[in-house]
Amino acid sequence: MDKFLNSLNKIGSKETEPVQPLSPTCAKSHCACEHCECQCQCQCQCSPSQKDIEDIVKKTVKEVSKEQKKDNNNDNNDNNK
């Protein structure tokens, strides 16, 4: 850890107070930066409810099956050419 700490170019102050979070409005787009933790600091619970997830899963599974059938048909058509 010393190697990293020594590589910091903080040559000035010995002041050591940590930053105060700005508490930004939740953008519902957490974890998008490469550091991933940063935008999660508001730690809001903006994820969908379990009921919402179950409903979306049902709907999405149907859509995916349709899409796969379509892909398979296209593959068959390509093979028949």
Binding site: V19, P21, L22, A27, H35, C38, Q43
Partner: peptide
């Protein structure tokens, strides 16, 4: 409310 600063390293959260 668009600006984020620091991360859990800063807040130790």
């Amino acid at each position: 409310g668009q600006l984020s600063n620091g991360c859990f390293v800063n807040s130790r959260g």
